[in-house]
Design a binder for these strands. Structure first.
Lengths: 340, 340
DNA sequence: GCAAAAATGATTGACGTACATCATTATATA
DNA sequence: TATATAATGATGTACGTCAATCATTTTTGC
């Protein structure tokens, strides 16, 4: 019981191999009736075209670019490391990956990088987007040139990016709220939120989800205006320390972006007893979970995200199918007791 | 900049293609010095063997068998559906999958299935194990015949299975405890545990993790002996209802296995106000999360597990590398606010 | 019914690697 | 040094598909 080949299909359909090939690659010059005959033969025999052989013959190869922030945050240096790793294993499938790190939170830097790359960008681009019209325009232009584009980690809707690869950030915010409200109970008071920047869609969406739940379900809790820390631990610590010093009603905190180290430092030197949910695992959050400073950490699997982006870009380039279940990026919850 | 082929490596190393081939597939008959020359040439040129071409030439195909419980639980019917789906996409990679469903909780049934399959079992087996010596023996015998074996969902250590594909069940139990303790706080009292069977390693391990945390961190909570429901909703409901009727101190419940529908029914008709963590998403747990009967659900991604098992079996069959990060199955936490 | 056009058959050479065979050369052993 | 042995080269076929060419058959329009 060896594999069914195009040859077998030809025999079954009573046509030549050449005709099967024409149907398979929808080339012109085949009558509808014949196409019918061939396709029914195909699924009668349960034929599946051998991708390996096809790619080999096509001598098709792929080149994808990742544009990611050069920021110092644990999360993004992790992402960059994962991309480096993925480069190697992707080569086996004739996928060539290059990565460009750009200054964070700067739409202009992204656009410049795209322009500078020119055709070197290859068949597809995955970029950590920053909400901005010039970025949208740059994406549109790429798509016109036939480059496939996905947004990565942080989305940019209303652009012509074809997909978003990343977690459901609204859901992440909702989970954070849902957990935090239970951790805080039965106390009541203010809840602080620390984010990176309002231009990052993922941060905005997490905040949105967080507020939805807090508003709807927690009449005893009051969400304070968020603190923007630009993903820099120093700034985060300063602003948060200041807030904690002057407001004694704070009972909970949600850190939804980078600069978590600053959050931890600020909390540990403050007097309040807070329930805390953060985002990112690093050595600092690990320690904070164990010591009890932080109650839960919401994590996105960066390794999975990178692989997913590559698979999706390849599928787009091939006009092939996308396995939705496989590409759904999960949100993982870590508490002290299940640290990896 | 076209791809580097084995031909290029041969030229670079000053040897023939045949010798490169010998090195590449570590065949005998090459001097150490020559091997050195070839390998350094390889990474000087950054050579990566083309998987597509290799597989094609090898005309290697794989046949794997899944042995899973035929049980009625939402989780296992989900698993079975995922296996069916995976069959199709696996064919593209010349992987042929067959599935055998056996009566649940019955070691004899597993052994019989293995014997009945004989050589039809193929190159590899993934089985949802039940702890039992006869199952261990059967696995050992398979391994002697060269069949690669992984345990799936529920592990069987001390056998010669080569890997376990599934979540870290101890960690799952710990998370459950960690969340439940916070949900229960500041109340105190008894905590009930509902499981499927003591012969299922995954259930035993979850229970273990759950108790570890409860014992260590919750002096105010008392974990009751577990209820074995054999993964049948009816039995679960009866036993749990009985327990809830006679014990009024119960403040929390962890359902770590199948039969969750019975758990939900029992709780809803009971008088206590419980904090509840369960395992499995189904229409029932969805509804229960929304209505507030259940506080959190710990889920393993069945789709990922099936794909992972297939990838691992293939890697074992090829004596190839396993991407640990990719094969780590995550535990997902669902609360009311992030239901998919 | 005939010419033009469309559809199909037949055939061939890639693609990059695996694998086998036989010939040749270098190295070790006696 | 002769001989056995190990190492390497040279070569060819196969894998399943793609892509192109040319020959042949069938259909279409008039």
């Amino acid at each position: 019981m060896s594999r069914v080949t195009a040859q077998d299909v030809a025999k079954e359909a009573g046509v030549s191999l050449a005709t099967v090939d024409r149907v398979l690659n929808n080339r012109k010059g085949v009558r509808d009736a014949t196409i019918q005959r061939v396709t029914t033969a195909m699924d009668r025999l349960n034929f599946v075209r051998d991708q390996a052989a096809a790619n080999l013959a096509r001598r098709r190869s792929y080149k994808f670019t990742f544009i990611v922030p050069a920021g110092e945050t644990a999360f993004f240096s992790d992402i960059r490391a994962e991309i480096e790793t993925a480069m190697l294993s992707a080569m086996k499938d004739r996928i060539d990956i290059n990565m460009v790190a750009v200054p964070p939170l700067d739409p202009r830097a992204i656009v410049d990088a795209i322009e500078q790359l020119g055709d070197d960008i290859g068949n597809g681009l995955a970029l950590v987007a920053v909400e901005s019209q010039i970025v949208r325009d740059a994406i549109d232009k790429l798509r016109q040139r036939g480059v496939r584009v996905v947004s990565f980690i942080s989305d940019i809707p209303n652009s012509r990016r074809e997909r978003f690869v990343g977690i459901d950030n609204v859901a992440a915010g909702r989970v954070a709220a849902s957990l935090l409200k239970r951790f805080i109970a039965p106390r009541s008071g203010d809840v602080a939120v620390v984010a990176g920047s309002g231009t990052l869609r993922d941060h905005v969406e997490r905040r949105m989800g967080f507020e939805q739940v807090m508003r709807a379900e927690c009449s005893n809790l009051n969400v304070l205006p968020w603190i923007e820390g630009e993903e820099l631990a120093g700034i985060v610590e300063e602003k948060l320390s200041h807030l904690l010093a002057k407001n004694n009603d704070i009972v909970g905190l949600y850190s939804l972006g980078g600069g978590t180290r600053g959050v931890i430092d600020a909390i540990e030197s403050a007097s309040q007893d807070l329930s805390v949910v953060t985002s990112e695992v690093s050595e600092h959050t690990r320690a904070a979970l164990i010591s009890g400073t932080v109650d839960a950490v919401l994590v996105q699997d960066s390794s999975h995200e990178v692989r997913s982006a590559i698979r999706v870009l390849k599928a787009l380039a091939d006009d092939g199918p996308i396995n939705e279940k496989q590409e759904r990026i999960r949100i993982e919850v870590f508490v002290r007791d299940n640290l990896p």
